Amino acid sequence: MRHIPNFQLVLIDLSRFSDAEIQGEALLRASLLLFKYVFTPEYRDRLPGIFALLKSLSIAVQSALFVPLARISGKTG
């Protein structure tokens, strides 16, 4: 008999939280803020703040994130 995992999917509406309420390490905060604003009209206005959070990360982590984030922001093809 196959094993069937027992888990629950938890969805959180990030729009209900203020930016100040979204806390944690820089990478977590940047990711959550990106998810919060990605489909909103103010998305592009929020990108500089999200990128500022990422400046505190190591160079290796910044390099790994550069291409996906550049594509998201529309800077590359």
Results as ranks from 00 to 15, higher is better:
residue 57 L to A: 06
residue 17 F to W: 14
residue 60 A to E: 12
residue 65 L to W: 08
residue 13 D to S: 02
residue 36 K to L: 08
residue 68 P to H: 10
residue 59 I to M: 06
residue 36 K to I: 07
residue 38 V to N: 15
residue 68 P to S: 11
residue 38 V to L: 15
residue 4 I to M: 01
residue 75 K to M: 08
residue 34 L to Y: 14
residue 34 L to T: 15
residue 72 I to C: 13
residue 54 L to W: 10
residue 12 I to E: 01
residue 41 P to M: 10
residue 75 K to A: 09
residue 7 F to S: 03
residue 36 K to H: 10
residue 68 P to I: 04
residue 17 F to P: 04
residue 72 I to S: 13
residue 44 R to E: 15
residue 22 I to W: 11
residue 5 P to S: 08
residue 70 A to V: 04
residue 23 Q to D: 02
residue 65 L to E: 04
residue 54 L to I: 00
residue 67 V to Q: 11
residue 53 L to M: 07
residue 49 G to H: 07
residue 68 P to N: 12
residue 26 A to Q: 03
residue 9 L to P: 03
residue 21 E to F: 03
residue 27 L to V: 09
residue 15 S to A: 07
residue 28 L to Y: 14
residue 31 S to T: 15
residue 28 L to T: 12
residue 10 V to Q: 00
residue 8 Q to H: 11
residue 77 G to T: 11
residue 24 G to P: 05
residue 76 T to W: 12
residue 69 L to T: 02
residue 30 A to K: 06
residue 63 S to C: 07
residue 36 K to P: 06
residue 34 L to A: 15
residue 71 R to V: 00
residue 48 P to F: 03
residue 15 S to W: 06
residue 17 F to R: 02
residue 35 F to I: 09
residue 16 R to W: 05
residue 47 L to C: 09
residue 64 A to Y: 08
residue 15 S to P: 04
residue 60 A to M: 06
residue 3 H to L: 11
residue 63 S to F: 11
residue 62 Q to F: 13
residue 54 L to T: 00
residue 29 R to N: 12
residue 28 L to H: 14
residue 49 G to Y: 09
residue 14 L to D: 05
residue 15 S to F: 05
residue 19 D to E: 05
residue 8 Q to E: 03
residue 24 G to Y: 13
residue 37 Y to E: 08
residue 61 V to Q: 15
residue 37 Y to H: 10
residue 51 F to V: 06
residue 1 M to L: 11
residue 73 S to K: 10
residue 39 F to D: 14
residue 27 L to A: 10
residue 68 P to G: 12
residue 58 S to M: 03
residue 53 L to D: 12
residue 62 Q to E: 07
residue 38 V to T: 15
residue 14 L to E: 03
residue 30 A to T: 04
residue 72 I to A: 15
residue 43 Y to D: 13
residue 7 F to W: 02
residue 18 S to N: 01
residue 44 R to F: 13
residue 5 P to G: 06
residue 42 E to P: 01
residue 4 I to G: 01
residue 28 L to M: 12
residue 29 R to W: 10
residue 64 A to W: 00
residue 21 E to C: 02
residue 36 K to N: 07
residue 41 P to L: 12
residue 56 S to L: 10
residue 28 L to C: 12
residue 51 F to M: 08
residue 49 G to Q: 08
residue 17 F to A: 04
residue 20 A to Y: 00
residue 45 D to V: 11
residue 1 M to Q: 11
residue 12 I to R: 09
residue 63 S to K: 14
residue 45 D to Y: 12
residue 71 R to P: 01
residue 68 P to M: 12
residue 7 F to E: 01
residue 2 R to P: 07
residue 34 L to P: 13
residue 10 V to T: 00
residue 28 L to Q: 14
residue 62 Q to K: 09
residue 31 S to E: 12
residue 6 N to C: 06
